[in-house]
Structures are given as structure tokens and as C-alpha cells.
Write a protein that binds this DNA or RNA. Structure first.
Lengths: 206, 206, 206, 206
DNA sequence: TATGAATGAGCCTTCATTCAT
DNA sequence: AATGAATGAAGGCTCATTCAT
């Protein structure tokens, strides 16, 4: 077993711990998840967890990275459907809604860590980065198809993704505590599309 | 002042504990707030807290009630500014934004407890009720001024408040992790008003 | 309401507390019975219990008195059946066994307090007195009927009641942890009678 | 000494805790013995006690096992003196009496746990088992010597050990709360032997 | 005579962390 | 690289006791 082999094993274990932590945190929430729980979920001993991470805080901040990346990836994929901007918007909306409905572990963890981040600034960077990246993804996608289709917005480009993603996130929040029926979901989808249609207009020939 | 007098002191203390809990939770978050902390903040002993509340859970659920009510009241006031719907919308938007900026303790606590509620269903009712009440407030306000001004929406009335409040909540979320500058705030405000303007149209003469 | 009336009320409440304590202790055992439990059982407040008794220890020692007296009375009655010594013995044996089977609260409490008494000498006197009184009861009864029937024992009179009551108490103990069936009960009853018959013999004419 | 060596320390500590618990419980009784007391007595931290035992209940039930086994062993040895049944009986009687007089810790603890067992059924099995085993010991001893000496009882074999051990246990109880003097002890010893002599008779030639 | 409020010590338990192996 | 053992601080909670009313 070479040095490389060792290194690899360590890296594998470390990742196992992070993934176990995601599962544990998603299941029980930060306030009810102990290092023991995580170790058990990872099939390792408590000592091993502390071998890989200096402290629980340290581990959690790695978890934040991991989850933020996972969510970023989800968003990226959601916005890469083919079609017109409206079709993409619809696809993204559906994808994200279904992710929330299924209770994707990373999303639960992110929600939890966002709250922890209020008081632990160390946790904020990955989450902030996630927000920024998500908006950037929307921007680049929109810009691309806008160019292709000769569209433009009646709003500043800095506003569109923020407003759009904030709306989607806010809807998810409301959905959790007071889920509407399928008809309402559809109505909201239509409303958003309608609004988008009034905002995305053909570019005047210059 | 006989039987009443006896109970009055208890009620006062109980309220003190709840208010102390709000402050403590707002400052350190649920996961880092102990009953001791709350007791100290209330100027009482740990035992006294448990005299008034069967358990920490019990106390926290009262806190959730309290905060949800406080937020509801804030929202109610925000939407009762005088003027046209658009003016009210602007007032509400500003009011809520400033509340978030100041870091109103009740809002922090609500954010925290929303996450706790994911895993502790007992906490959900007050929060759900808060969402429902907030939307109802918007509905009643809009309906009233719509009638007065002969306006109507191009969207179903069930969709408007959900979409509107979700957007505001989502914006607050994004704001926290990636605050925009004042110019962006203004741009977003304008955008929302613009969208509203396209949605709220004069009622056709029947 | 005269001074007497007050005094009477106090005495009544005090007795209520003791009786409530007996029930509570019988149900949950000393280690799991709090002053609160007792107060609740008595329909009074915790404060009232401490008005009547200086401390929990004080109350418990009154309870010990009460229960020891109750058991003494039970034993007294059990040995006052009519008939020959053997018949009384049988009657007493049955009475005591049934008392234990039914789980008479005073007996449970006495068992509990006997253990507490190992380490709290203050509790010992009433229990010791109970043992002494019970044996005295047996002695006086036996002596009376022995005289009437012209019997005598082949054992010193100091030994008989101790041996007899110890045997009955010991049997109760074994019964609790490893109850025998009815047939065994009968066999033991017969055995004791048989032994008694060999010990109680006609007094030689002098 | 690889995997084994690792576990050995734990087993040793675990045993230390149990033994410390026996001492602490014997000294202060269940109701007045905390996990802290036990840990201190064992020279370990409170945390260590909980590392070895899930809960106080768990520990206490192990203690019950331990003490019941110790008592069983004592009884076994007491009945294995050489000689005729009567001589053994006398030896056993003396041995057990002296054990009680010395206040053997295991006996105190058993007395205590017997009372706890009234309300905590989990504690009963070891104690029941102890009673059963003790009687079995007496049975096997008696049977053996009876055969050797051509004796038999006039009582069913199921009755003898129950009656005998119950009597001894009952005597111990009375002794504790109202100790007799040495003369009484002797008288009782003689009485028991006398009774035994009338019950253990030569087997008729068949 | 009795109560409701409050206290503070102590209890059982959990848990992040350390360390020898 | 990983483990089992142990620690010690802290946490939630119970409870006997006190006291103003």
C-alpha cells in the first residue's frame, strides 16, 4: 500500500463521513444530530470522525460546502433543458418543485445550515456562494437564449434572476408550511409564465 | 384582586420568560440556547422556567405562537397604509424590508423555528397559521381597495397573495446571504411595482 | 369557627395527607414518590403538606407509624378467630396470606420503609414496635387458649411466636418473587399445622 | 492480546463499576445513591459509568445479577458442610446468620432491590432466580444425604426447602428490627433442629 | 389553614473531545 | 487510519423546601 493508496483511503473515508453527515442532518436536523450519530451512519467510530475533522464545526462547514455544491448542480441541470426561455423556466420550476417535494436531503440540510449560519459566520460563505452561483446560472442561460431568440427584458438583468429565484425559494417555503393543492400549483405556474411573458419581449430592431 | 391577584404575578412571569426566550433565541439560535440562558435572560431561576412550562419544547412552542403573532401583527400594519394598492404594496415592501434589515428578533426566531419545525411537527401549527393569516391580510386589503378603485387582477385571487408574499420572503432570504446595494433594492422595488401594474387592471364596465 | 374547629380541620387534613402518602407510596414506592405526588393524591398543595409536616422525612415517619399500626391491627384480628390453637393458626395463616395476595397498601409501604429504615434509624422504631407487638399478640392468644385447653409447647414460649411469624413473613417474601400454585399453598399450610401439632402437646398432669 | 487486549480494560472497568455500585447501594440504599456516588466510589467519571451502562436502571439490573449470584454462592457453600443433614442444617443456619450479622453488602443490596423490584419488574428475574436456585441447592443437598443415610421426610419434597428458607429469611428480617440475645438465637437453633428431627425420619425398610 | 410562586441543589444523561494503542 | 475508553462540561428536568399572601 503506497502513500497514494493511504491518501486515497483517507479521502474516501472523509467523503463517507460527509455523506453520512448529510443523511443524518437531513433526517434529524442540526440540533438533534450528534457526532455519534454521524459516525454510526458512516460505519465508523467517533474517534475516526475526529481524525478527519478537527471539530464538529469543521465537519459541518464541509457539509455546507458539499450541500451547496449539490444544490448548485441541481439548479444548473434544471436550467439546461432545451427550448425557449419560457419552456426552460417551466422545466426549472418543475424540477425544483419536485426536488423540494421529494425532500432531497441536501435541501433539508441547506435549510438547517442557513439558520445556523445566522449566528455562525463561518457557515455563510458556501451558502452565499450557492446563491450567487445559482443566479449566475440563470443569468447565463437566459442571456444565451435571449440572444438566440432576439428577446430582451424590460427589467435590468441584475434584477431578473434575483427576483425569479427568490420567488421560487419563497414559494417552496410557503409550500412546506401550507401546501396548496395541485390546482393551485398549476395556477401559480401559469401566473409566473404569464408574468415572464410580459417581461420578456422581442428586441426592437436597432 | 383576590383570586385574580394571585394569578397575575404568574402570568407576568410567564410572559417575561417567553420574551426572554425570544431574545435569547434571536441572539444564539435554538441549537445554542439552553433553558439556563433563557432563565438568566428572564432574571429567574431555571426552576422557575420549568414551573411555568412543562419542558423546553413546551416553552418553545409558546415562543413560536408569540413570534408568529408578532409577525402577523407587523404584516397587518404594513398593509394598512393609506393609498392605492400600488402605494400600499410599496409601503408593505419597505416596512418588511426594514424589519428584516433591523433584524427584528421575532423574525430571527421564526426563521429558526421554521427549521426546527421540519423535524418537530408540534411547532408547525403556529407557523402555518402565520402564513395563512398573512395571506388573508393581503387578500382582504387588496379586495377592499380593488373594490374602491374599480380594479381587478388578471390572476386568480388565490394566487396573488401567495405569489406576492413568497416573493417577499424569498427576497429576504437572498438578501440575508447576499445583500444587494441600495440601487438593487430600488430596482427590485420598481420591478415589483411594474409587474403589479400589469396585473392590476381597471375592471371592465359591465 | 372556634379554636377547636380549626384544630379539628387541621387534624383531618393531616390525616388525609398521611393516607394519601400511604396510597402513593404503595403504588410507586418510596424512590418514585415525591411530595408533589402525595399532595396531589391528597387534593392539597405542596405547601400544605409542608405546613403539616416539617419535612418529607417527618411525613414518612408518620406514615411508618400509621402503617405499622394498621398491620398490627390486621394481625390482631387475624389471631382472634374462635377455636382451638390449630384452628386459629390456620385462620391467621389464611388471613395474612390473603392480605399479601391482595397487596394491601400498608404492607407494601411497610416493606418499602423497612428498607429505608436500614439506613435511616429514625424509621426503625415504629417497625420494631410492630414486630414486637405482633409477637405479643400471638403470645397472648396462644397462652390464653393453651390454658383453656390444657396444652403446652415443647419449645420455650419466647421462641414460638418469633419462629412462627418469621416463617409467615418469609413465606410471603418467597411468594412474591416465586409464587407457588394453590396445591403448594395447601401443602405448606398442612405442613405448618403438622409441625404445630407435634409442638403443642397436652400438659402433663402435675 | 490484540483484540482481546483492547477489550480487557473495558471489562475490568465495568466490573469495578458494578462492585462500586454494590458498596454504594449497601451503604446508602437505592433511593439515596446517585450515579455520581457510584462513579466516585469506582474512581471513574460519571461519563465513564454511562459509557459502560446505558442507564442507571441498566446498571442496577446488572448489580442485581451480581448480588443474587453472590448470595447464591454463599448459600451453596453454606449447605456443603460435611456431616448428617442435621449437622448441615446447623452449619447453614450459622453461616447465614453470621452473614446477616456482618451485614454482607450483597445482602443489603438484595433487600433494597427486592423492594425496588416491586415496582420495576425488570429487576425481578435475577431475584426470582436467586430464590429458585437457593431452594434447588437445599433440595439437592438434602436428597443426597437422605439417600446416603436412609432418611426420608414426612413432608412433600417441594415443601421442605421453601419452608426452611422462608423461615431463615423471615428470622433474618425479625432479627434486624428486633435482635434477640445470644440465648434466644440458641433456643431458635435448637427449636429448628428439633423440628427437623421430627420431620426427617428413617426410611422404612421396603 | 393553605396556596401559588420561586429557588437551588442535585439528578440522569448526552456529547464533543482527547488519547493511548 | 482508526478504535475503544474515558473525560468533563453542559443540558433538561425533578424536587424538597421556603415564603409572601
Amino acid at each position: 500500500m503506497t502513500a497514494r493508496g493511504r491518501y486515497r483511503k483517507s479521502a474516501v473515508s472523509k467523503r463517507q463521513v460527509v455523506e453520512a453527515a448529510v443523511r443524518a442532518l437531513a433526517t434529524n436536523g442540526y440540533a438533534h444530530t450528534s457526532v455519534s450519530d454521524i459516525a454510526a451512519e458512516a460505519g465508523l467510530s467517533k474517534g475516526a470522525v475526529h481524525y478527519h475533522f478537527e471539530s464538529k464545526e469543521d465537519l459541518v462547514s464541509h457539509v455546507a460546502d458539499h450541500c451547496a455544491a449539490a444544490v448548485r448542480e441541481r439548479v444548473r441541470q434544471a436550467w439546461q433543458a432545451p427550448g425557449t426561455p419560457l419552456e426552460r423556466l417551466r422545466s426549472a420550476l418543475r424540477e425544483m418543485r419536485s426536488a423540494r417535494r421529494e425532500g432531497a436531503p441536501e435541501l433539508r440540510v441547506i435549510a438547517d445550515l442557513m439558520v445556523q449560519a445566522i449566528n455562525e459566520p463561518k457557515l455563510r460563505p458556501p451558502i452565499s456562494a450557492m446563491f450567487v452561483a445559482n443566479r449566475a446560472e440563470v443569468v447565463s442561460n437566459l442571456r444565451e437564449t435571449f440572444d438566440a431568440l432576439g428577446l430582451e427584458t424590460r427589467l435590468p438583468m441584475s434584477v431578473v434572476p434575483r427576483l425569479l429565484l427568490a420567488t421560487l425559494d419563497g414559494l417552496a417555503l410557503h409550500d412546506f408550511f401550507d401546501p396548496g393543492d395541485a390546482a393551485l400549483d398549476d395556477a401559480i405556474e401559469q401566473a409566473i409564465e404569464e408574468i415572464a411573458a410580459t417581461l420578456f419581449v422581442p428586441k426592437p430592431v436597432s
